[in-house]
Nucleic acid binder design. Structure first.
Lengths: 228, 228
DNA sequence: CGAAGTCTTGAATATTATCAATAGGGGTGG
DNA sequence: CCACCCCTATTGATAATATTCAAGACTTCG
């Protein structure tokens, strides 16, 4: 229940864009050379400390953020104070998509992270010249919906073992190896999978004994699956 | 496992728009008089029989559909053949939002329904003159994501009784009364709430005995809650 | 009326949650 | 460096909850 530390304030750095890993596959890919220059000059960024929130549930969404590096958990609190994690967010994903509406969830950094900040006004202006920007936002929203529905299937139809294996498999598919580093705590995983912390712990032990996980050591997990 | 009947093919009717209940609060609201005339002349509609599918999971989404009347269940099948309902769709909602991508789910009519059919090309053309159309699509996608996350919270944090009450309360809030007509079967509700059919049935009995539901008679349910 | 489907109820089982205690890990200060 | 504390994670025993399998009741429709 302690107050989250405030994250650092926005600041402009012209060379941030040079090191941006997600530029080619996000809205900046739509911009021409001159516009890219302008963006690089004026774009504000935010650096978010581990545990700090980039956006907060219920607050107004003034900006659209593009995650450049790091990782976030998306948290929704229920009326009776329970915590549900509705997703995890990685570089290339957007946060604060809701134009002038309250945020549906808080986004809390799991590790020191960087995000790029677009004002909605700026986006509208750019969209006039580059209609594909809006299309990318629509497509991205669609991807998010798809992921949320995968999540619904996990929670609606799978038992504890299946939930955990599905979760680890999704993480492993983000990289190329069967060894995974978990950026989130056990409680985070439990709150994502709709399980109690103890059930998750027991399920991990069971999966390891059954050989479906060849290693479970703190935040390092190794899947045992037929070579992809 | 029987094949769903094919729904009737598309047809054009100039006066369909006259009886459209959702026109003012959907994309047509952006159009001027002349454009509205054009839409009314050329727009194709589909009438979907009860049990028929408007779109199918895995098939390419050629069109965007706007539901005019009736009601659909959104069905996703898991690899092992289980059925999860990821949502219900009512007049004013869109289907087939994914530009040139496969549908994430099937939409099956719960009652005889009508939908209005937009080709993606037509939408792009109209959007050039009316940028708000794209904004409406973005906003609608956001609403859908929000609803999916509500669903995640139901499945992740609530027990059977809470799930059922939350579901009925949502339905009641769509209208103005505490008496609800359910357009879907018990199995549909169970597959939406992540419960077995028998568990749902028992939970209904329990809620009635406890007085939280004052009536449960087939598809008619009456909530017992402090007058809103 | 009969048949097929849908819904409800019953009894036994399986799964998960709860409460409680213990173990591990990382940092701080003596 | 070690002892201590705090936080996170694991394990154990029991209780609550939901599933499974089975049977019966209610509806709808031919």
């Amino acid at each position: 229940m302690s107050q989250q530390p405030k994250c650092s304030s926005a600041s402009s750095h012209s060379h941030f864009c040079d090191i941006c890993d997600v530029r080619e596959r996000s809205i900046c890919a739509e911009l021409n050379e001159a516009e890219m220059q302008q963006v690089a000059q004026t774009m504000a960024h935010r650096s978010i400390k581990e545990g700090a929130s980039l956006i907060r549930e219920g607050e107004l969404s003034d900006y659209l953020y593009l995650v450049i590096s790091g990782c976030f958990r998306l948290v929704r609190m229920t009326e009776d104070g329970q915590r549900q994690i509705v997703g995890f967010v990685y570089p290339g994903d957007f946060l604060g998509m809701s134009y002038a509406a309250a945020n549906d969830f808080s986004a809390e950094a799991l590790e020191p992270s960087l995000a790029c900040r677009f004002s909605h006004g700026f986006l509208d202006e750019m969209s006039a010249r580059h209609p594909n920007i809006k299309n990318r936002l629509i497509a991205k929203g669609h991807t998010e919906l798809h992921k949320a529905q995968d999540h619904i299937v996990i929670l609606g139809k799978q038992n504890a073992e299946e939930r955990v294996m599905t979760f680890f498999t999704m993480l492993a598919d983000r990289g190329d190896a069967n060894e995974i580093y978990l950026p989130m705590s056990r409680q985070d995983i439990a709150d994502y999978l709709g399980l109690r912390l103890e059930t998750l712990s027991r399920t991990l032990a069971k999966l390891k004994k059954a050989g479906r996980l060849s290693a479970v050591e703190g935040r390092l997990v190794t899947l045992n699956r037929p070579a992809a």
